[in-house]
């Protein structure tokens, strides 16, 4: 079985973000980067499937040089080889999907895993777009996954409800948090990852279909009243508010 997992390296959300000079993205200097959390579940699902069926697992990422760290993590978690599409521009979903498509269209993957969305942009488009480009079955927001010749998945819906689906391969699934328990890469596997094949390629991105008009911090509109100061004063203020609203 040929398996592909698509990952993205994203800025740690705990960081402080400042708008960069182009006004379309934030300043990346001094930020910590990590493997997108949703993609960790995708990598884990892919590695588990490989462990179940055997075969070959490739990990691909589109991004600047730093994204190599995220690829290394996926290799250490169990991917066999990595493809790094070097791209310094901040691509929109359609562009990213198209770049990945160009790299993999001839490869005939049986199963492709992606995160359901990236934690920096949260568009949730790349996986589904890629599935459409490849003209294969795709299903998003998967919280349970089984393979027995075909794949059986559960999609997470609203209000705790799930939809159970069955589909044939080749297929693409986008993984929601909680799908599995992503493993820690073990230390020996981190060292072994160094020896796994990793190719760096470039690929021209198509024009963006989106235009960023402005980027900035959220407005302070309707901003909350801050209750600061001494603990006991804070407590009495809150008690007073609750009483005023007849809630205590």
């Amino acid at each position: 079985m040929k398996i592909l997992v698509c990952i993205k390296q994203v800025a740690d959300l705990e960081s402080r973000f400042q708008v960069a000079s182009g006004q379309t993205w934030f300043n990346e200097t001094d930020l910590a980067f990590r493997l997108n959390e949703y993609d960790e579940f995708a990598v884990e699902a892919a590695v588990q499937l490989k462990e179940q069926t055997g075969g070959d697992l490739t990990v691909i990422s589109v991004g600047p040089a730093r994204a190599s760290e995220a690829l290394k993590k996926a290799l250490a978690m169990g991917a066999d080889q990595a493809v790094h599409v070097l791209e310094d521009q901040q691509l929109e979903s359609f562009q990213t999907a198209q770049v990945i498509f160009e790299q993999i269209k001839a490869q005939g993957y049986d199963l492709i895993f992606t995160g359901m969305q990236s934690s920096d942009k949260g568009s949730g488009q790349v996986g589904l777009l890629l599935g459409e480009m490849l003209k294969i079955n795709s299903v998003s927001c998967v919280v349970a996954f089984k393979y027995d010749g075909r794949i059986e998945v559960e999609r997470e819906l609203e209000g705790g409800l799930r939809a159970k689906l069955k589909l044939a391969t080749p297929a693409l699934v986008t993984c929601q948090l909680g799908l599995n328990q992503p493993r820690y890469p073990t230390l020996p596997n981190i060292m072994k990852a160094k020896k796994k094949p990793k190719s760096e390629v470039t690929s021209p991105a198509p024009a963006s279909r989106l235009q960023v008009v402005a980027l900035g911090p959220p407005p302070k509109a309707g901003a909350a009243e801050l209750i600061e100061g001494d603990l006991l004063a804070q407590v009495s203020k809150v008690v007073a508010i609750l009483k005023e609203h007849k809630l205590a």
Binding site: Y184, T186, L187, P188, N189, M191, K192
Partner: peptide
């Protein structure tokens, strides 16, 4: 054990995790 910490910087051929010494120190 699961992470391979006990084997730290001992080479793989001796049953270790094969870390470089600084990686062990970071651990």
């Amino acid at each position: 054990a699961e992470l391979g910490l006990w084997g730290s910087y001992i080479p793989e051929e001796d049953g270790g995790s094969g870390l470089d010494y600084l990686s062990y120190i970071l651990s």
